[in-house]
Every structure is written in structure tokens, then in C-alpha cells.
Write a protein that binds this DNA or RNA. Structure first.
Length: 129
DNA sequence: ACCATGACTAGAA
DNA sequence: CTTCTAGCCATGG
């Protein structure tokens, strides 16, 4: 299929706010949308979301986007997003930091040593949605 | 325009 | 097995 010489992929141009709460960015909004699709009691990894957006290498941007997940609406279940190890790498960004684990346990997800138990079993792939 | 940072990941030693 | 390095892309200064 002929793909127009688009310099960049512009899937959607929704308004979102950067972690700094300054302007809007589509990248963050895409991350928020995927994150909101995470079923309750399930978890996913930054790379999975990044891959769904097109570049799994941009997992850093996903995590960074989550920085603004706390001030967007509807709220984004950032606590369901962990790294590919199943570790709650971003728990330090919660307030309090232990709230992330508490939220996961409230959904039936066992967390031990800051790591999701049976992470592979609870893993939810956005591409499979 | 350039440099530094960031809730990551995969690969190499 | 563990530990380190490099790549990645977007935002801020």
C-alpha cells in the first residue's frame, strides 16, 4: 500500500498535557488511552505500551508520560503499569509510594518485594486487547 | 540549536 | 548468574 511521504506518524492529535503541565502532546494521550484500557486485576509493561504506539524502544517516554497521568482525566491506572520485570519501578512516583502496591493488591494482584507475583500470568498485552 | 534528564529494554561482558 | 553499556524518543533548560 502506498504510504504517503509522511515524515511522522500522526495517528491522533488529541490534547494532552505534558508532565510539566504546560502544553499538549499527542504522545502522552496515546499512552493514557492504552493505560486506561488495562483491565482491572491486570498489569502491563512500558515496553508493551510503547510497542503498541509503534516503537517499543520508546518505553522511556511511556513512563515519562505516566508522570502526567496523575493530573489528567479520566484518571489513568498508572499503578497497573510496571516494567518488563514486573517490578514497581514507578512506585516512588506515587504518593505515598506504597499506594501503588496497595492499589494492585486491592485488585487481587499479589505484590512481593516490589514485584508483581505471577507477572507473566497477569500480563496484559495492549495489542491483544 | 545543543545538552541533560527520564516510572525502559535488549544485548554484551 | 549478575552487572554494565548503548539505544531509544520526547521534553525542558
Amino acid at each position: 500500500m502506498t504510504r504517503p511521504p509522511n515524515k511522522k506518524n500522526s495517528p491522533r492529535r488529541l490534547s494532552a498535557v505534558t508532565p510539566s503541565g504546560k502544553k499538549e502532546s499527542s504522545f502522552f494521550e496515546q499512552v493514557y488511552e492504552v493505560a486506561r484500557q488495562i483491565p482491572r486485576g491486570r498489569v502491563t509493561s512500558y515496553g508493551a505500551i510503547a510497542a503498541c504506539l509503534g516503537s517499543r524502544l520508546s518505553a522511556r517516554m511511556v513512563g515519562w508520560a505516566m508522570n502526567g497521568a496523575g493530573h489528567v482525566s479520566p484518571a489513568v491506572p498508572a499503578h497497573r503499569v510496571v516494567n518488563r520485570n514486573g517490578m514497581l519501578s514507578g512506585k516512588h512516583h506515587f504518593s505515598p509510594p506504597g499506594s501503588m502496591q496497595q492499589l494492585l493488591e486491592a485488585e487481587g494482584i499479589a505484590v512481593q518485594d516490589d514485584t508483581v507475583v505471577d507477572f507473566e500470568r497477569l500480563f496484559w498485552d495492549p495489542a491483544t486487547a
